[in-house]
C-alpha cells in the first residue's frame, strides 16, 4: 500500500510537467488532466511514488503531461505492463490512462484480465466514442449507425457498454464520471486511489474535432439535471430539477417515476447500494428511453489484491522452504560424484 508522505503539501502545479500539451484546443482531455493533477495533489502520495502508464491514442499522451513517473507504452497493452509493475512494486500508486479504442478494442483482453485479477491499478478509460488520433473512425463504443470516414453507410456493430463490461470482468471498483464535472471527477479519483484492488473509471469525454457533443445530453447545462443521475451510496435514486424524478423498480425492470406531490413517495424508490451486484448491473444498462445516465460509483467489492496475494505466496514459500539457497538448489536431486 502506498503511504502518506511527510513533507510539504503538494499543489496542482507540482504535477504539471515541462512538456507542452499537444491536444487540440477545446479537447475534453484538458479538463481531465487538470482534475487528475488536482486530485494527485490531494492524495498525500509523493510524486516519485506515482506512475502513469498508457497505451496509444490521444488520451495515452497523458503521462507526458503529469510530473511523476510515466510510461507511454504500446497500443492496448498498458494494463498488462502496469500489472507487471504493480506486482513488482506494490509500494507504487499505479494509474493507467487510455481511450475507448485502446482499452476496449485492441486492449480489451488485457483490460478484462487486469480487472478480474484484481490488480491494484487504477484504470481511467476516457470514452469519446471515436478514434481521434487516427482521425475519426468509429470506435467500439460508437452507437450503431455511426457515419464516419471508415463507415460511410453507418457502423453496423453493436457497441460495448464499458461499465457493464467492467462489472462482468469483476473489477473491484467501478465508476463513471464526466470530463467537465471537475469536482465529481476529482472526488471519484480520490475514492479510486483509496480502493485496494482493481479500479475502472469511465470518463465521458468530448472530442471537439471528430465527435463533438456525443455526450451533450449529459453535459448541456440546460438538460443536465434531467439527464444525469448521481449515484450515492444508501441514497434513493433521485434526479431532475429539485429531485422531482426518481427510479423505481417495477418487477425486475427500472422505471422513471415522478416524485413528491402527485407522484410516488421517496420510500418507493430504489436506494443505491454499492455492494449490490445486481443493482450495479441494472444501473449500467440504463441508457436512453427517458432514463438518465448514472454518474458515480456503481460497485465496490473488497477482495485481496493480486499483488498482495503474490507477495504472500513468496512469504509462505520462504516460511516453508526457507530463504532460497542457490547452491543447495543446484546440488539437489540425483547427484553423483566423480572422484
Amino acid at each position: 500500500m502506498t503511504t502518506a508522505m511527510d513533507g510539504p503539501k503538494l499543489t496542482k502545479k507540482d504535477f504539471v510537467s515541462d512538456q507542452q500539451v499537444r491536444w487540440c484546443p477545446g479537447c475534453g482531455d484538458y479538463a481531465i488532466l487538470s482534475s487528475v493533477q488536482h486530485a494527485f495533489a490531494k492524495l498525500g502520495i509523493p510524486r516519485h511514488k506515482i506512475v502513469i502508464i498508457s497505451g496509444i491514442g490521444c488520451a495515452a499522451r497523458f503521462p507526458y503531461y503529469v510530473d511523476c513517473f510515466g510510461f507511454h507504452t504500446i497500443h492496448g497493452r498498458a494494463p498488462a505492463l502496469a500489472t507487471g509493475l504493480k506486482v513488482s512494486r506494490p509500494d507504487l500508486s499505479v494509474w493507467v490512462v487510455g481511450g475507448d479504442g485502446d482499452m476496449l478494442s485492441i486492449g480489451g483482453n488485457h483490460l478484462l484480465h487486469a480487472l478480474r485479477r484484481n490488480v491494484g491499478i487504477k484504470i481511467l478509460c476516457i470514452n469519446n466514442r471515436i478514434y481521434g488520433l487516427t482521425k475519426g473512425q468509429y470506435s467500439p463504443t460508437s452507437p450503431v449507425g455511426t457515419v464516419k470516414k471508415s463507415t460511410p453507410m453507418g457502423s453496423i456493430d453493436r457497441p460495448v457498454n464499458p461499465i457493464s463490461l467492467a462489472l462482468a470482468a469483476e473489477a473491484g471498483f467501478v465508476a463513471r464520471t464526466v470530463d467537465v464535472f471537475g469536482p465529481h471527477l476529482q472526488e471519484t479519483l480520490l475514492r479510486a486511489a483509496a480502493h485496494e484492488g482493481s479500479v475502472f473509471v469511465e470518463v465521458l469525454q468530448n472530442c471537439l474535432i471528430f465527435n463533438d457533443a456525443t455526450f451533450s445530453n449529459v453535459t448541456d447545462r440546460a438538460s443536465r439535471e434531467d439527464n444525469v443521475l448521481y449515484l450515492e451510496h444508501q441514497k434513493p435514486l433521485l434526479f431532475g430539477a429539485g429531485g422531482d424524478k426518481g427510479i423505481r423498480l417495477n418487477g425486475l425492470k427500472p422505471e422513471v417515476v415522478r416524485v413528491g406531490e402527485g407522484g410516488v413517495p421517496e420510500s418507493e424508490l430504489l436506494v443505491h447500494d454499492e455492494k449490490d451486484e445486481s443493482l450495479a448491473y441494472l444501473l449500467s444498462r440504463m441508457e436512453g428511453d427517458g432514463f438518465p445516465t448514472p454518474i458515480g460509483t456503481f460497485r465496490t467489492q473488497e477482495h485481496v489484491s493480486y499483488e498482495a496475494a503474490a507477495a504472500q505466496q513468496v512469504r509462505t514459500a520462504r516460511e516453508q522452504k526457507g530463504e532460497g539457497d542457490l547452491m543447495k538448489l543446484i546440488h539437489s536431486g540425483d547427484v553423483w560424484t566423480v572422484p
Binding site: P46, H48, K49, P63, F69, G70, F71, H72, L85, R89
Partner: peptide
C-alpha cells in the same frame, strides 16, 4: 520509480 527527484517519462 519511487526514486525521489528522478521523475521522468519514457515511451
Amino acid at each position: 520509480p519511487g526514486t525521489p527527484g528522478l521523475e521522468h517519462r519514457i515511451g
